[in-house]
Nucleic acid binder design. Structure first.
Lengths: 369, 369
DNA sequence: CTGAAAGCGCTTACAG
DNA sequence: CTGAAAGCGCTTACAG
């Protein structure tokens, strides 16, 4: 053997000086260094790291001492290459800026980092194109798993990724394919809850400000709204509820503000007796934007008009008019998703559904008109 | 050569059947497959990928055709191991749940993904311990770089990481060490701006609800408050301004609400003529919590008391009482930080400082008491 | 310009 | 139980 430890090409100027010139970043110790120090082979070092029990106690002790002395940490990249899987878990949400996702992401990170994984958080901007690209990139990274809020209803890319062996769990996706585990709340039931609350308060002219029509969440919440209405009519035998459905362009406060300005306010000002007395917004952010516009336009909440949201983001309770809303347990959702992912693929795919709960605060009241 | 392509251990049941049983996940093609198809060596394949110009045009074409036909994508893990750097960029913030950080993170992701990097977003919970652990983990991942909101004022772990060769840029850190590039706004000037605004409106009894006293942001904003006061006294020659400084336990709406309940409201109710007529909150979230409590307690904003925040998160404009605040250009901050990171370490470390700007909305007015 | 070979740092059957 | 060796998929001097 010649001086073999360096790559032939990697001889930087500093390397020419004494092995450990103090200002030069010391090369991190590797298995070989540990093996040398402990007087064993690299295989044994690896064994104490990966299969502790299959190694004689005294060897283990020597190796562990060497590891401690050198401050040795395995190189995760090399482990990933060899094992075919890395300590990364990819999390892909629609929008990094939406508190709903971030609450869930924070919960996910809690369980992932507790188990030694690193969370890779990215946004798909609810685009199926970006989702596909991201999923492919994550697949190539050999991530330990992927937690995805799917934009693509066909679940094509996700299914492929799963078929290639990467555990995937769908988050906030109701119609998950059989083979892929999922965690979500019952959006439909949640929306029904909101309408029932409004109905119970006495509202008969209701505006539903939904999100973009092509999103699954929107479709389901609309279905829930219609469920509640149908049920009500069946119960009362009367066809006395008027529903106005509007769509915002995104699930953001800004979009809510715009929608309020452009369409909600017109509905509210109808003089033919159809003006809504309550607005159900498909998420809290939308509700905030709406309330903001309403206030500027001189409406008082809930006196002039009731507003109810969806999600119960932390800010909902902190609004000047604390928002009545449908609570999604974001924390539990995130935790469950992460745990499901790590719990392994051995069991058949499970689909967890959480129940939304009506949280009454001050933005809803009996109608005065 | 014997049948050499498989790892000796990796012979799963399916592999025993015909090479490409349809239900089995096809092994992704590698350089060797491309080389074989193109009739060249793997070295040449690698060359067309990494040093396009050093390869004869006709060879390049054949290789590119093979790559396209096979849908070949380089394995980033192997590249990372060999090159010593991965396509990952680590971003570490205090709190995934704070819109300020997430706005910036969204901007960072925009530039990073445009350049082909993957963002790894994690939270340090503003703990120096967690920060150190995270930085070490990222270092071991051989990430392309790290964008950090530092909790540790000594910048010890960050400095070490940088010394080991990982590019680091500090984000929202004013007192960055010489050697590490940083991006931040002038917190001190921003806080002064807020106080000047209040003073100009005629307020003479001001409450400053700061964040946790041990955070750098808090210290600087307090300094800015004092600057403005000193300057005012110098200008007017009068010592007629009364400042009350309070600390919230965190930079959250919740903490703001608690602070309002526990201390701010007491100050407000002082009957000895010291009751503040305006409150400067060290961030918008705090301001939201405060406003929420104030409203419940019967105060009207801005008539009874003015409130001004800091950050200008998107929701600030969407509050029922749109919040006057000091705007940080989160987008630009994030973009600049990411670009600084990728622009390379060749230039001397740069420290970019952005100017905060006073954004007047409706939560501040002349005092009425 | 191209091919063959070494090596990144690890893990894992396999033979002793 | 341990050591030596092969190999994960790529990149890069180096010799032709």
């Amino acid at each position: 053997m010649t001086p073999p430890r360096r790559t032939p090409e990697g001889t930087s100027p500093q390397d020419a000086t004494t092995a450990s010139s103090p200002s030069v970043p010391r090369k991190a110790p590797g298995v070989k260094d540990v093996a040398a120090l402990a007087g064993v082979s690299v295989g044994s070092v690896s064994n104490v790291i990966n299969r502790r029990d299959s190694v004689r106690p005294d060897v283990r002790e020597r190796v562990e001492a060497a590891i401690a002395q050198l401050g040795y940490k395995p190189n995760p990249t090399a482990q990933a290459l060899r094992r075919g899987t890395s300590p990364l878990v990819g999390v892909a949400v629609f929008d990094l800026t939406n508190p709903f996702f971030m609450e869930a992401a924070a919960a996910m990170e809690r369980v992932l980092s507790r188990e030694g994984y690193i969370m890779t958080l990215s946004s798909t901007h609810a685009s199926v194109q970006e989702e596909r690209e991201l999923l492919e990139a994550l697949g190539r990274q050999a991530v330990r798993g992927v937690l995805l809020t799917p934009a693509d209803c066909t679940h094509e890319a996700a299914t492929r990724l799963a078929a290639e062996g990467t555990p995937v769990v769908l988050f906030d996706a109701a119609n998950a394919p059989e083979g892929i585990p999922s965690v979500s709340i019952d959006d439909r039931a949640g929306a029904a809850l909101a309408i029932e609350h409004l109905l119970a308060l006495g509202h008969r002219r209701i505006c539903f400000l939904n999100g973009p029509a092509d999103m699954r969440q929107s479709a389901q919440r609309l279905a829930g709204v219609e469920d509640a209405l149908a049920h009500w009519q069946q119960l009362t035998g009367a066809d006395n509820v008027r529903l106005t459905v509007l769509n915002a362009t995104a699930y953001t406060a800004q979009a809510g503000h715009c929608a309020a300005e452009n369409s909600v306010s017109q509905a509210l000002q109808a003089t033919d007796g159809t003006a809504p007395t309550a607005i159900f917004c498909a998420n809290d952010l939308l509700a905030m934007g709406v309330m903001s516009y309403l206030r500027v336009s001189g409406w008082t909440i809930p006196t002039d008009v009731s507003v109810i949201g969806f999600d119960d983001i932390p800010l909902a309770a902190q609004m000047p008019v604390p928002l009545t809303t449908i609570r999604q347990p974001m924390d539990e959702l995130g935790t469950a998703a992460a745990e499901l992912l790590l719990s392994g693929t051995d069991t058949p795919a499970r689909h967890l559904t959480f129940n939304p709960v009506l949280t009454i605060r001050e933005s809803t009241a009996h109608p005065t008109r």
